[in-house]
Design a protein around this nucleic acid. Structure first.
Lengths: 211, 211
DNA sequence: GATTGATTCATACAAACGTTTGAAATAGTC
DNA sequence: GACTATTTCAAACGTTTGTATGAATCAATC
């Protein structure tokens, strides 16, 4: 039955995301998938194709997963930006879906291989378009394309940092609080930081803690 | 002569930074270093120790490299923050030092191994302290520790994004301009974005292009 | 129930890996 | 120049790697 193929993709995804492509061995993958060693070559031909299949599976799942809310057209751009940031945070830290979906894609984005282009086009591009449509409404028209891109990157850069560099954050502020900063506080901070930066809200130091 | 040891570290650094620890083979490293295959085990004992030596060497070099200017005490905090951002960008994109120095450390920060703690303490911590001392002057005292950290992360997150995710930036805005965005424009954008966010400057949309 | 096609399995293969070894070569000291 | 310690070298070690093979098992059709 085709179930083996799916088990292989899941096991491979976990191990690839955890250890990287080279360090992941077919034997480890097959063992975790309860499959025979030859299963990979039978179903996927070679290791590389299994990796590509895992990346594709991850991006497919993530697309349906936590969709951006279908906000009404009359929703103010400021609110839509805030919702965008919250959704992106939720996508990164949502615990209901396997963590490797995101991790394997982030690996691909940081060190692109042949599977990178499809990740960008099918997963990143829609998010970028969504963000840009918000910024088009939010920002004055006379800004250059490059300026709009840079503002977008400033937003996404903040969000990604908290995910990708979580280990360093722990090491740095370790003694302050072992607890990771709660998700909603992060989203709120980034939203206020960004809105203040583009002149659509008070500065982050204007008000106290939102709690 | 001890020259071989240094050649091995340099060759290993380049290959580790490029392909990662597992994918880098001792044979490739020794060939690039013009050293015998057994040289690694003679000088470092094992592959892992060679990797650690390469990371250590990178962080040592980077420390002297492009130091933060010794700004006078009376320099306004706003100016110091701008200088901090510019120096960090310069550190990332400076072409005079080998690129692998930074890359191997960023790899370590994204996927920590045993060498990570020393990178954080010896390289990241001083930068974090510098930034925090600026923010202490710049921000009102009643902010919580956590809020100050988050503002710092928002700054560093922006800067890192432009380096780590350069390939995706190219793919996304490819048709707009093949040329990468100039370094000084990036630094200026992040500085203005940040200063506006914390209420220490006009919003990024307030003025036109700085050029 | 025999036949066929798809899937699983144990096993084998050659190549590449990190590591070891002992002899050659080199450098330094008396 | 003889002696010692350090460094290099070619060759081999035992594993592990990805991949290939052919028989065994299973599912389905007739």
């Amino acid at each position: 039955m085709d179930d083996t193929k799916q088990r292989l993709i899941n096991a491979a995804g976990e191990i690839f995301a955890d250890k990287g492509y080279e360090a992941a061995s077919i034997r480890d993958i097959c063992q975790r998938a309860d499959a025979n060693l030859a299963a990979v070559n039978y179903h996927f031909g070679e290791k590389r194709q299994l990796y590509v299949a895992a990346v594709r599976h991850a991006q497919c799942c993530r697309q349906e997963d936590i969709p951006f809310p279908d906000w009404p057209a009359e929703m103010p751009a400021v609110e839509r930006l805030r919702a965008f940031i919250e959704t992106m945070f939720a996508r990164m830290l949502a615990g209901d879906r396997p963590r490797w979906h995101l991790e394997i894609m982030l690996r691909e984005l940081a060190r692109p291989t042949e599977a990178c282009a499809t990740v960008v086009e099918d997963y990143i591009r829609p998010m970028a378009d969504k963000l840009r449509s918000i910024l088009l409404d939010l920002l004055p028209e006379q800004l250059t394309e490059q300026q709009r891109w840079m503002i977008g990157f400033s937003i996404v850069g903040q969000i990604l940092f908290y995910y990708v560099h979580q280990p360093i954050i722990r090491l740095l502020i370790g003694h302050v609080g072992i607890e990771p900063i709660p998700l909603d506080q992060l989203a709120d901070h980034v939203a206020r930081f960004t809105l203040a930066a583009i002149g659509a809200g008070p500065s982050v130091i204007a008000t106290g803690s939102p709690s």
